[in-house]
């Protein structure tokens, strides 16, 4: 290592060249573990940074944030739209609504909400987009075929997240939001886009988290994790309780 220091200190091109030649002669195979070790340590450092910085509030408020709103279905969609209804439409803009391809009601309801907002002059038609995503697993689908469909869903989620590059993701389950949150987290680690992920557990979950909620909580993929019952908050101390939304 002292030869390297000397080479760079003197800034003598010949010395630097000699050193590099020596280094390359050591052979690719000898260097591979070294590069792997470096890559793993860099990834570990980056992951630690992402985990530590996530869930920390912003110091400089952004002017506006592009927002991805993941609509579950039925009751999930109703809860989500009641939150969207009270968000400031100028700050949370543009808004991208995402629902499963099999769920044709949720996007319609979101469109109705956006139209009424445009009518009140609180939003514009360009501020909202409506997108569909493949579902990982349908109700009753076998676990073997769901491996394939989960992969497709994951690829689709990566594509959508890359296209939208949301600064905020708001979701409340069920499964549709998992590939999107994973994709957003991967882009966060890769440094392509910093997304803040908010998960609001459904009011139907009183004593236990849903599978989606549990996954996101345990993997620490969310910035803020909200539950709607105090007994659930006591069970999951990193979650927050600010009352019921329904």
């Amino acid at each position: 290592m002292s030869s390297l220091r000397r080479a760079f200190k003197s800034l003598d091109p010949d010395l630097v060249f000699n050193y590099m030649e020596e280094y390359l002669e050591a052979g690719f195979f000898k260097l591979t573990p070294f590069f792997i070790a470096i890559t793993i340590s860099l990834l570990a450092i980056r992951l630690t940074y992402v985990f530590l910085r996530s869930s920390k509030p912003f110091v400089d408020p952004p002017e506006r944030v592009s927002t991805m709103i993941v609509l579950g279905s039925g009751g999930h969609t109703a809860e989500m739209l009641s939150i969207v209804n009270v968000l400031n439409k100028e700050r949370f803009s543009p808004r991208f609504y995402v629902a499963a391809t099999t769920d044709n009601m949720s996007l319609q309801k979101a469109q109705v909400l956006e139209q009424s907002l445009a009518h009140e002059g609180k939003g514009s038609s360009e501020a909202a987009q409506f997108l569909q995503i493949y579902r990982s697993r349908e109700v009753g689908q076998s676990y073997i075929t769901s491996i394939g469909t989960s992969l497709i869903a994951m690829m689709h989620a990566l594509w959508l997240t890359l296209k939208i590059r949301p600064q905020v993701i708001i979701c409340n389950g069920p499964g549709t939001c998992i590939p999107l949150c994973v994709a957003a987290f991967m882009f966060k680690v890769a440094g392509l886009r910093w997304s803040s992920i908010f998960y609001i557990e459904s009011i139907a979950r009183v004593r236990k988290l849903s599978l989606s909620g549990l996954l996101l909580y345990k993997l620490r993929l969310t910035d803020q994790f909200v539950v709607q019952w105090p007994q659930l908050q006591r069970k999951y101390p990193r979650s927050q309780y600010v009352g019921r939304i329904m």
Binding site: F58, I83, V86, R91, S196, V242, I245
Partner: peptide, 21 residues
Amino acid sequence: PPGDSVPVAKLINRFFGFPDD
């Protein structure tokens, strides 16, 4: 007693440093 989604919106606002509306 009906629920209220304003506290959740406030929580999201506070995270970004947005003032409450």
